[in-house]
Amino acid sequence: MIIFDIEKNLNSHNNLSVLKIALEIPAGSITKIYGPSGAGKTTLLKVIAGLSKPEKGRITVNNTIWLDTANTISISPQERKVGFVFQHYALFPNMTVQQHLSFAANDETWIKELLAIGKLESFADQKPEYLSGGQQQRLAILRALATKPTLLLMDEPFSALDPDMKTELIRELQILWKKQGTTVFIVSHNPQELAGIFDQEILIESPCR
């Protein structure tokens, strides 16, 4: 079970607004987070991952406290070790596809399996600048999966994929997530996207001012 109750100030165009959200999410489920731009969807993922600190809040993942501002507890992103798919991929320009995965995991068999899932076997020696947008996005997903995270946070992860590739990849990912018991949060700005895939959805509306 993932329980969070956070309050985070959002700064945009000199306006101060506050993201307030409290939820309980069953472990092993897929949650879609959607809402308008600037509502704080990405910020929420970063707070969960430990990449951004909220003003107030508490996050508990499978009975382990990750954050408790009242008791000044905040474990590092390295200890939380969530899988994170960044909206703009955040690929390492100096590393090939293979090196991205080896940097995250030391298991050759697992890396081969990931390359097959992302259909990137023949691009293993390519650096991101030589990959298409869709291939870069798949690599970002594979890198996040490489550590076999219990919690996977994905920020607009399928936006650059063509419909066929997207359907096939999601099917394979669902099998993998079920096998590994991964809890998944997927941010999307499109309310219609991912229909039939998620177990619950969260609407983040424009934050309070």
Partner: peptide, 15 residues
């Protein structure tokens, strides 16, 4: 450099 490069590395467990 984009801050997300370092952040991506941290989420992979790297110090």
């Amino acid at each position: 450099l984009s801050p997300s490069l370092a952040q991506a590395s941290y989420t992979l467990g790297k110090n």
